[in-house]
Amino acid sequence: MARRKTITREQILNAAFQVVATEGFAHFTARNIASKMNCSTQPIYLEFKNMEDLKLALFKKIGDYLENEVFSIPQIGDPLIDMALNYIELAQNQKVLYRAIYMENHNEKDYLNKFSYELFEKNLEASGRFNQLTNQKKHELFTGIWIVATGLASLMSGGILTPERKEIVLLIEKAIDNILKDNNEMLETLLFEKEE
């Protein structure tokens, strides 16, 4: 008679999530994950082909967590700015998880970029403000917001900067405005400033 499985795929993913959220990907090993579940490593390899297979499944779980528990929290009512504010709060409130996902070296950068851009497009559509943007402008807007939010997230999580929320919102809004300005208008602004 075959032994009944006592450790499920979901339990393994939850334990892997806990390891990464509290210790980072440097500690993402079968032994550490098994230790969280008080079992041997055997159930991990019964459910997953290898650790890379587990990591890919974990990133899907992390993506679901980010989309449903982190980036979906209403802040000021503008989906794009809310997304940036939630990203910054993740860096402050869940430092190890933030660093593991966005700063540590792992093989899931392509998945993370695709996930982030798709979430950005969803929020862009929900905002309703930028329906006429070209794909190039959307990409520029994504990159610009990402850079500003990451700079703020890093500086704030390290305690180097402590801006108030309204200052953060203003910085993000200014970044959006500058990115969306017509190139000719930006050139005129630069020339005008030089003449003064």
Rank of each mutant, 00 (worst) to 15 (best):
T29G: 08
R31F: 13
K137P: 12
I101H: 05
R31L: 14
P79G: 02
K137L: 10
I73Q: 07
N50M: 09
G128F: 11
S154H: 05
A26C: 10
E167M: 06
N68C: 04
I76A: 08
L161N: 09
P79A: 02
E140V: 03
K95D: 04
N68G: 07
N184A: 14
Y98L: 01
D78A: 00
V19N: 01
T8S: 09
L191R: 09
L190K: 06
P79V: 05
E89F: 00
D82Y: 01
Q94N: 08
R31G: 06
F192N: 14
L112Q: 09
K181T: 14
A30E: 13
Y87S: 01
Q92H: 11
N123W: 08
K109M: 10
T29Y: 02
S40W: 04
T41D: 04
V70E: 00
S116L: 02
L46E: 14
N113V: 14
E10K: 08
A34Y: 07
E173N: 05
R31M: 08
N50T: 13
L124I: 08
S40D: 06
Y102G: 00
L85A: 03
G159R: 04
S72D: 11
G77E: 07
I101N: 01
K114H: 10
A153V: 03
D64C: 06
L180H: 05
A26E: 15
V96A: 05
I176W: 03
D110G: 07
E118S: 12
E69I: 00
E125R: 13
M186I: 14
N105V: 14
A34M: 10
V70I: 12
L97F: 04
M51R: 03
A91S: 03
K36Y: 15
V19T: 01
I160K: 09
G144R: 00
Q18A: 11
T22Y: 06
I172G: 00
E185V: 13
N50H: 09
E188P: 11
S127F: 06
L13Q: 12
K174G: 09
E195R: 14
Y117H: 10
T41K: 03
V70F: 03
R4H: 14
L85Y: 01
Y87R: 02
R31T: 12
A15D: 11
P43N: 06
G151S: 13
E173I: 02
L54H: 01
K137M: 11
L191F: 12
R129W: 11
R165S: 05
E193S: 11
G158A: 13
L141H: 02
Y65I: 01
T6H: 12
I179A: 09
G77H: 04
T189V: 15
I160Y: 10
A57D: 12
I168E: 01
G77Y: 14
N50L: 12
A21Q: 04
Q94F: 04
A15R: 04
T143M: 08
I44F: 02
E164C: 06
K114D: 13
N86Y: 03
F142W: 09
L152W: 01
N105M: 11
Q18W: 10
L13V: 03
V19E: 00
I73N: 02
I172F: 00
